[in-house]
């Protein structure tokens, strides 16, 4: 997942040297996530409590 500060560089077709993008390929949770059990991806009906996954430290 990209953060807004990454958008311009990621989309820039003139940026063909990808060294400045390498940090994006490291496993890291960049923002807190909510994980909710649902009945189906077709209706997103909740069937349990939401768990929050904290972001990794910078």
């Amino acid at each position: 997942m990209l953060s807004p500060e990454d958008f311009d560089r990621w989309l820039d077709p003139q940026l063909t040297n990808t060294d400045p993008l390498q940090h994006l390929f490291e496993t890291r949770i960049r923002q807190p996530l909510l994980v909710e059990p649902v009945r189906s991806p077709l209706n997103l009906e909740p069937v349990g409590a939401i768990e929050e996954i904290a972001a990794d430290n910078q």
Binding site: L2, L24, P32, L34, S40
Partner: peptide, 16 residues
């Protein structure tokens, strides 16, 4: 199987 819906706590998601 249990399906989970995962979303950002704030804002939308921008996949690369």
């Amino acid at each position: 199987k249990q399906c989970y819906h995962i979303r950002a706590a704030k804002g939308a998601i921008a996949f690369a």
